[in-house]
């Protein structure tokens, strides 16, 4: 009894007092022939005290808290999924349980291969939640030297968010989503006004708050024209 009470008492304070936020990093390096590499990083380091406390529990607010084994299993599943996806090679994953930073990267033969990675998940999500997300989010036209990052907003996301308990909504308060795209050619122009082009014109960065994406106030949609 005491052990349980002890756990709950300490956890109560840790969970209540520690702030929570996370960052998602989407990086794509594209070669002229349309091949390249992609890396997705999930950085929860800023919330590590809270996550560490949460992971002592089985579930919070009715949501199951994944254990290290669960995370390992998920990363393994992702790797298997990538291995099965056509055109994908050189799969690497990194995990840092001390800081709670996880990333997975791979090379692709053409941009369509990236779409194929997420297609299955998006189709399942659309079917399950009645959303209408696009399954083609990345597009590269060699002839016109144009790279497109599609982002189709769905009002269902906002509705789902508003249905969350206020405690659960807080998870997204300081969360950010960063896209970095690097090119072999120089960037001529970008369509998203929030995107920044590097001084050497070979990289584009777009940083948004996840909450803005959820509420439909900002978008990841970006049409990047490269100099031929």
């Amino acid at each position: 009894m005491l052990r349980k009470s002890f756990n709950y008492l300490i956890l109560f304070f840790c969970i209540s007092l520690c702030t929570g936020c996370f960052e998602i990093l989407e990086e794509i390096t594209l070669k002229q022939d349309g091949s390249g590499s992609v890396m997705i990083t999930f950085n929860m380091s800023k919330s590590k005290s809270k996550i560490a406390s949460l992971m002592l529990l089985d579930s919070v607010n009715g949501y199951k808290i994944p254990s290290e084994d669960d995370i390992e299993e998920t990363l393994k599943d992702v790797q298997l999924h990538l291995e099965k996806t056509q055109g994908i090679s050189n799969i690497k994953k990194t995990k840092d349980y001390k800081n709670y930073i996880f990333s997975i990267s791979c090379d692709f033969k053409n941009v369509d291969n990236i779409n194929a990675i997420f297609k299955e998940i998006i189709v399942k999500q659309n079917k399950k939640e009645g959303t209408n997300f696009s399954t083609t989010n990345f597009f590269y036209n060699k002839t016109s030297s144009t790279f497109k990052r599609h982002f189709k907003y769905d009002e269902v996301v906002k509705k789902t968010f508003y249905n969350l308990k206020s405690e659960d909504k807080k998870v997204f308060n300081d969360a950010s989503y960063t896209c970095i795209y690097r090119f072999a050619d120089k960037v001529k122009k970008v369509s998203n006004k929030n995107a920044k082009v590097s001084p050497n014109q070979t990289a584009v960065m777009l940083r948004t708050q996840v909450l803005d994406l959820i509420l439909g106030e900002k978008s990841l949609e970006n049409n990047i024209e490269l100099i031929k």
Binding site: E23, L25, S45, I180, R182, S198, P199, A203, V204, M205
Partner: peptide, 8 residues
């Protein structure tokens, strides 16, 4: 956290 240079 991350620190970005000019080329991101």
């Amino acid at each position: 956290d991350y620190e970005y240079d000019e080329e991101y």
